Computed example of a mutant assay.
Amino acid sequence: MNKNQTILIVEDDVINRVALCRFLSKQGHVVHPAKDGDEALEIYAKNKFDLIIMDLVMPGIDGAETARKMRFISNSTDGDYPPIILITAVDHRAQNLEKIFRAGVDRIVQKPIEHAQLLECMYELLMPQNHN
């Protein structure tokens, strides 16, 4: 995985958002924060990202619906879209996983986020042979 990947962080909790942005910035990545799905869609429509890390449960549209809308935007433009990691404090086994993955989510990471697990997941998704 290269440094200087451009990552969109979508997290409604300001403390979690700032902590995740700081951690990934220290790893050498360019990070764009968004506080909710609507703001994320605005930013996404104007920028190219290598990866999106997004909370599942947010006010307004949730992470799965935001992912679905991002895929729609990508398909109506250049068809190229970045992998999406959904982060959630909710036990994802209780979630409708089929709906989440059908929306375009590539991986789910449980909160509290373990940095090593997140980096491993990012590495898997951003390896050249896996990149869309």
Rank of each mutant, 00 (worst) to 15 (best):
P33K: 11
I100Y: 00
N130W: 00
A34K: 01
V109K: 04
I53E: 00
E114Q: 12
I53A: 00
I52N: 12
V90G: 10
L20G: 07
D38A: 15
R17W: 14
I84A: 09
G28M: 06
A34E: 10
R102P: 09
E39L: 09
R93N: 08
A94Q: 14
A67T: 07
A67L: 07
K48D: 04
A64F: 08
R102E: 10
V18C: 01
Q110M: 10
D62A: 09
D91F: 05
H92G: 15
N132D: 04
N47H: 09
Y44Q: 01
F49E: 11
G60W: 02
A34L: 07
Q110N: 11
I113H: 02
S76A: 12
K3A: 04
M122S: 15
Y81K: 02
Y81C: 07
V31D: 12
I73V: 09
C21Q: 10
Y123P: 00
A34T: 07
N96M: 00
E98A: 10
N96G: 01
M122T: 05
K48Q: 04
I87W: 00
D55H: 00
E120G: 12
E65W: 01
R93S: 02
D55N: 01
H32A: 10
D13T: 13
R22K: 11
D50R: 09
E124D: 14
K69T: 03
L97R: 15
T6P: 06
A103R: 10
I9T: 11
D78K: 15
K46Y: 07
P83D: 06
L118G: 04
D55L: 02
K3L: 12
